[in-house]
Amino acid sequence: MKTLTYRDAVNAALHEEMELDPSVFVYGIDVGDHKRIFGTTNNLVEDFGPDRCFSTPLCEETLVGFGLGAAITGQRPVNVHMRVDFLLLAMNQLANMVTTWSYGSGGSLRVPFVIRAIIGRGWGQSYQHCKSLQSIFGHIPGLRVVMPATPADAKGMLKAAIRCDDPVLVIEHRWLYDAEGVVGDLDEIAPLEGASILRPGTDLTIAATSWMNVEAMHAAKILGKAGVGCEIVDVRAVAPLDDTTVAASVAKTGYCVVADTDWVPYGLGAELAARLHERCFDSLKAPVKRVGFAFTHCPCSRPLENLFYPNAGQIVRAAEELLKLPPVDLEGEDFYSYERKFRGPF
């Protein structure tokens, strides 16, 4: 048991799995340069050589097709994309090829292929470096989509993803990289399916993805002062989605806010709301509330950026509406701002 940052947890997972299995290799744009993908690919070139960790030309579609080819011929490739936005260039390979190959081969070819993609945010990265899009990826059959929110999951889920015989997309939020937590040992993996209860409560369920778990914890603290006990369910895996855990929580609380790091329309909140209707309609005391990005493009300007991204404040307001509570005063509340962690670009 060790305490690591999320960044080092990702690095440790890669390191351990590369050590255990020589068929694992890591590739992608800039994975081998001195910045090492925010430090997540540190020491891989040094310890495993340039054949197992290498920077590539800029050619996302080909990189993903390449991974498929390697995966069906005995390798366990890990392809890294510095932003989810860049992965969109590979949507053809992902939706038409990677996710269909096992099906089309009647199951005789499996695709043990991991794609890591990072959600950017802040410092005016604006509308081409900010996307999350888990609902789009989760919409495609044959693709596992996970969003680790803690260092333990960052390590355990990535290790599980590398050992998995299905294609797995791991979506990491850049802001989580500095989070610290206890992580599992060499042979410990975290399941690729199943939500988890981050905080128990009885009055309201907050189902959150990725960074929104941090905001949800903050919101729970604020609401706690008003006597509301929030249960936070970290969704963890977008596909397959564990609605059982969320429904069990809602059966207890009767209320649900979905806090997602993505646009709301056609999003994870819509999917969860539909499933809660199917699974525990009678327990719901009010319609499910959804919190996510403002439905516009991410603007550059700092004050507009603040309006674009949801935070603990919006979760609190959504909860108050559901529970018909008077709004608490958020005036002196110290909401998270990235200036605390870093300055300057990226």
């Binding site: 005016g124 081409q128 550059c300 300007s301």
Partner: peptide, 19 residues
């Protein structure tokens, strides 16, 4: 104005240096 994210920029601060 655009680099400062202000009104009067090429996109009133929505675009920034890259756009």
């Amino acid at each position: 104005a655009e680099l400062y994210g202000k009104c009067g920029g090429t996109a009133d601060g929505r675009a920034g240096s890259m756009h």
